[in-house]
Write a protein that binds this DNA or RNA. Structure first.
Lengths: 193, 193
DNA sequence: ATTGTTTTGTACCAATTGGTTCCTAATAAT
DNA sequence: ATTATTAGGAACCAATTGGTACAAAACAAT
């Protein structure tokens, strides 16, 4: 018994994610945010409460979509073995050919707000853990590593997760390390087709 | 034939580095910055011009001091072999036990401003390159790796640099991966005393 | 001591910040 | 059709933003 909302909630949150991802939290002002979300001040404050809550919603959106896609990719046996899938992860998200590389929203968020914002810290930590777990699983699908014990695979997964985030950070200065096959091959001590 | 400046330039720049490192560029406002630098508006704008220039000066200060110290550590043969020195780098700077981890200023800066600020992008890229070069050199001082060709060492250095930055990013959410000996031992395929 | 030059600190500024108010419009239930 | 309830949008707000103007103060050279 009330007026239904006109805007598409999912599209609005997606717009928020895009602009926060590109500019960061502090550097995104309300007018830009509203424009990216496609809604007016009234609707925004009614639906989200404040800028910070919209940021958290954008992080959740990233978790559902982007991290979800990465996890799916890492578990997709139709692509190749675990090593191949990890290479794909780096190749696909390690370097956008576009003008202004956004890096990884998780990396951006943990660096900008991690130490000063508990909610952001826990959300981003959860996402990097999710990624690390998926990488760990993918490592189980590599012929050369079948003899590795779980502890060794866990260490490799920790390394690759941090390598991924570091590469994302460096991508923001224009760094393009395209040779992920050889780099990850070196790390995993195997040739990657 | 003029009034000499009263404040210590080096101390002021160091103060700027501390606050920018901890809070980031956008989240640091003038009053906080001035307080951290220990000078008044007049002196600040006379000596630095504007906030952005002070930030660049802080980055240079970090390069001279912190990156300089890391490079020195990595090249200090009195500490141990190259692997040991790399482990030390991670142990010493990977996780401050303090309350609010600042991570690495280079990582913070490239993530926050890299895509939108050419000067910051080139300075931070130069610093990460400097670190990578020092890591490459340290890899030359490891017995197990003597048979590696330069290309392989270059790849390992690229991996370790990105691993380092990724670990710095994750440290900001409270992540403490204390087991760098085993992690880097896994990566370099050798035991590290 | 006077002068020329530069630092320092305060008062001030327009512009922008995130956020609120409040009125109108639109809908669902009755 | 009326009513209760919520969405939408514009006007408005105090506070804060980075930056400037300017006068007083401190020196060095003469």
């Amino acid at each position: 018994m009330a007026r239904p909302r006109e805007f598409d909630m999912n599209a609005a949150v997606d717009g928020a994610m895009q602009i926060f991802w590109r500019l960061g939290y502090a550097a995104t002002n309300l007018p830009e945010l509203l424009s990216a979300m496609g809604l007016s001040r009234g609707s925004f404050y009614k639906a989200f409460g404040d800028k910070h809550s919209a940021y958290l919603a954008a992080l959740d959106h990233y978790d559902r979509n982007c991290i979800g896609a990465a996890v799916k990719l890492l578990g997709d046996r139709s692509i190749g073995d675990g090593a191949m899938r990890i290479v794909r992860l780096f190749e696909q998200t390690g370097c956008g050919e576009g003008v202004a590389p956004r890096g990884c929203f998780v990396c951006n968020a943990m660096v900008e707000l991690g130490p000063h914002d508990g909610a952001v810290a826990s959300k981003t930590a959860a996402m990097s853990n999710r990624l690390e777990a998926a990488i760990f699983d993918a490592l189980g699908d590599i012929a050369n590593l079948q003899n590795d014990d779980a502890a060794s695979r866990r260490r490799k997964a920790a390394i690759i997760t941090r390598l991924y985030l570091g590469a994302q950070a460096m991508s923001k200065t224009g760094d393009r390390d395209a040779d992920w096959k050889n780099l990850l091959g070196e790390l995993l001590d195997c040739d990657i087709a």
